[in-house]
Design a protein around this nucleic acid. Sequence first.
DNA 1: AATGGCGTTTTATTCTTTGAAACACGCGCC
DNA 2: GGCGCGTGTTTCAAAGAATAAAACGCCATT
Lengths: 264, 264
Amino acid sequence: MTEKRASSERYVVQAVDRALDVLEAFHGSEESSLNAISKRVSLNKSRTFRLLCTLARRGYVERTHDGLGYTLGLKLLERAAHFRRDLKQSAHPYMDRLRKQFNETVNLAVVHNGKLLYLNILESSRPFRMAAVVGRQAPILTTSLGKSMLAHSSGNEFRAVLKDLSTLESRRLKKELEAARDRGYAFDHEENEPGVACVGAAILDDSAHPAAALSISGPSTRMLRHEREMGLALAESCREISRHLGYSGYDRMRDGSKRLLKLA
Amino acid sequence: MTEKRASSERYVVQAVDRALDVLEAFHGSEESSLNAISKRVSLNKSRTFRLLCTLARRGYVERTHDGLGYTLGLKLLERAAHFRRDLKQSAHPYMDRLRKQFNETVNLAVVHNGKLLYLNILESSRPFRMAAVVGRQAPILTTSLGKSMLAHSSGNEFRAVLKDLSTLESRRLKKELEAARDRGYAFDHEENEPGVACVGAAILDDSAHPAAALSISGPSTRMLRHEREMGLALAESCREISRHLGYSGYDRMRDGSKRLLKLA
DNA sequence: AATGGCGTTTTATTCTTTGAAACACGCGCC
DNA sequence: GGCGCGTGTTTCAAAGAATAAAACGCCATT
C-alpha cells in the first residue's frame, strides 16, 4: 500500500490523519468512552488516548465533568465561525432585509464538491415555512440556488454537472439556465421538496464567477404570487453584496469574458 | 510542568498539535499562502506543507481554485454542527415560538471555560434589535443568560465566579441571584450593552445543574414593558426543553439537593 | 537570460510515535 | 475479602514515521 497515488497521499502525516479519525468518530452530540472511540477508529487504546489528550488540550474535544467520557469541543464552533466569514457578514444585512420584506426563509449557500452547502439561513416567522439547517448539503440541479450559480458558470463546470443527464434533459436545462441568466434569477418549482418553491440569484466575483447564491424559499402557494418581485430583489441584493465583497462589479460579465457560460 | 492530569503535556502527539496550530492560523476567512502560514506557525515549509496536505485531504482546509492559497474547509462546519446538537434541536421550536410571540431576538447559550458561549440565535425581525453571533463569547456576570445559570449553580461554581468581586458587589449579586432563582428568570438591564436589556432562564439537567440558558434580548425601551411576561414564557420553555432532553424534571431541585446554590 | 517568488519533491537522520503489557482504580459479584 | 472485569493511565524499548534542508520546477518580473 505504499504506492505513490495522487500527490497528496504521500504527504499525509499519519498521526494527524488518525487524530482526524478520532475527531470524526463523534456522532450527534453523545459522549463516548475511550474504549468506544478506540474501537470505532480501530486504533490501539493508548494511541487513541494520546490523540484524545492532544485534541482535548486544544479544546477540540472535551471531557465530561465526571471524567468518564469525551464529547466534541467548542473549539470547533469557534473555528467554523471563521469559515467564509466575510461572505456571511456581507450578506447578512441583505438577507435580513429580504426576510423582512417578504417574511419567507432566506438562504445563503455556496457550491462545494459538486454539492450545494447552506451557509446561513434566516427563517421566516410564519408557522408554515422552510426550515433548513446550516451545514446541510443539497443537489445543485434541483435548487434555485444551484441553478442561479450554474447559469453563470464556465463551460467546463457546466458540462461537468450536465454530463450524467440525458440529451433531452440537458437541452431543457440549458434553456432554463439561459433564461435564468438573462433574467438574473432562477426558480425551483417543487423540484427539491414537494410543496416548496424557491427563487435564487447568484453572487458573482470579480471575474463573473459565481461565488455564492441567495434564495428565498417557502410554500409554493405563497411564493408563486411574488416570484418576480422576489427575483428582482434578490438580484439587486446579490449585486450589492458582490460590490460589498470588493468585487468590481458585473461589467466584465457583459464584455464577453471567456468565463461566461457558453451554451452553444 | 509536572502535572499528573491526563491533559498533561506528556501525552500530546506533536504532529497533531502542530496541525492544530496550522488550523488555527487562519483568521477571518482570508486565504493564506503556504509560506505565510509556515511563517505564522513558525514551522518549516515542508512540514507545514505536509500538515496542510493532511488537513486538506480531509476537508479541514481547502485550496483555492488557482491552487495558490489555502482557506478553512467546510469539514469544520460539518463537525461543528454536531456540537451540542441535541440541545440545539430540542431548544429550537421553543426559541422559535418565543421569537414569534415577542418578536425580539432569542438566544441559546452554555457556559464554557468560565465564559458564556452563544450556541444559537434567532433574530427579531425588527430593524432595531440585538444581533449577536453564534460562537461569540460573553461574560457570565453581566448577562441574563449567565445570571440565570449561576443562580442554579453549586456553591463551588458560584464562589469561583465571585471570588474577584468586592464584598459589596458580591453581596448585591447574591441577593440578585437569590431573587432570580425564586422568580425563575434573571435580568440584564443594560449591563452588557448600553441600551440593551435581557431576560433569561436556565435549562436544568437531571440533578438541577444548569446545562444551558435561554434569553430574550432587545432595546430596553421595548423590553421593560414585557419583562415579566417574557420571563414566565422563558421559564416555562426551559422547563419543557429540559424535559425534552430527557431530564426527569425539577423535583430534585426542591428537595434540598446539595447541588443547590448555597447563598449562606 | 537572470532573478526571486512560489509550491513541490527528495533524502538521510533523528526523535517522535507506537504497541503491548502493566498499573491503578472502582464496581459488582460470588 | 477476593475475584473478575470495567474503566483510564503509565511505562519503555523498538520501529518507523516525521522531519529539516536543500534541490527542483514553474511562472512571473526584470
